[in-house]
């Protein structure tokens, strides 16, 4: 069983590191053809390289990697938005389809979701972490429970209410 406190500490560290990685990639990507899968793969490997003694199970690692995924995708969405506002024609989605299938990507305002998730984390950190693990990491209910050290039943309960919370936040979002 993971210690939730340790996970929290690590999450902070991972956030800082990933923010750096994601920023670097977005810059690099502008001139070169870097595939989203490669970015994520590399970011995950960095995590795997730095973290070994700090994560105990596979699902624990995937839950942490999910945070990487969220950061990377949101940074990319932001960079795209910034480039659009700057009048530059961008089409960065070229290689994203391997990560997120394009029909779905078109429906998702990742930046709004990220903002809502950050707000949720301020009041219900555990719920936000569950969403991250399940939505960005693709973990099942059981794996999420294992990764975060809580029972599957709790994961399910939290997920239902977190989902409602996020749906409401995004529908009321002033920009959508």
């Amino acid at each position: 069983m993971s210690d939730p406190v340790a996970v929290g500490e690590m999450v902070q560290e991972v956030y800082t590191e990933l923010h750096r990685i994601a920023g670097g990639y977005v810059r690099r990507e502008r001139a070169q053809s870097v595939q989203a899968t490669d970015l994520v793969h590399e970011a995950y490997l960095r995590l795997a390289r730095h973290a070994p003694p700090r994560w105990e199970s596979r699902s624990h690692f995937i839950a942490i990697a999910a945070i990487a995924m969220r950061r990377l995708l949101v940074e990319r969405a932001r960079a795209r938005g910034a480039a659009k506002r700057g009048g530059v024609q961008v089409q960065v989605t070229l290689h994203d389809h391997l990560l997120v299938d394009s029909d779905r990507a078109a429906l998702i305002d990742l930046i709004a979701l990220d903002r809502a998730l950050t707000d949720l984390a301020a009041i219900e950190p555990e719920q936000a972490r569950i969403v991250e693990a399940r939505y960005f990491g693709g973990l099942t209910v059981e794996e999420t429970g294992d990764a975060l050290g809580i029972s599957p039943a709790t994961v399910k309960r939290h997920w239902v209410i977190a989902r409602a919370w996020l749906v409401r936040a995004m529908t009321n979002s002033p920009e959508s």
């Binding site: 899968t37 994520v40 793969h41 995950y44 490997l45 995590l47 795997a48 596979r58 690692f61 995937i62 990697a65 999910a66 995924m69 995708l73 391997l98 990560l99 997120v100 779905r104 429906l107 998702i108 979701l113 969403v131 399940r134 939505y135 960005f136 990491g137 693709g138 973990l139 989902r163 996020l166 749906v167 995004m170």
Partner: peptide, 20 residues
């Protein structure tokens, strides 16, 4: 809700498992 019902990226998990 069409957004949250399925994981955003099925590939992400695969990649994370490979890294693990």
């Amino acid at each position: 809700d069409q957004i949250l019902d399925a994981p955003l990226s099925p590939k992400a998990r695969e990649l994370a498992e490979a890294a693990a």
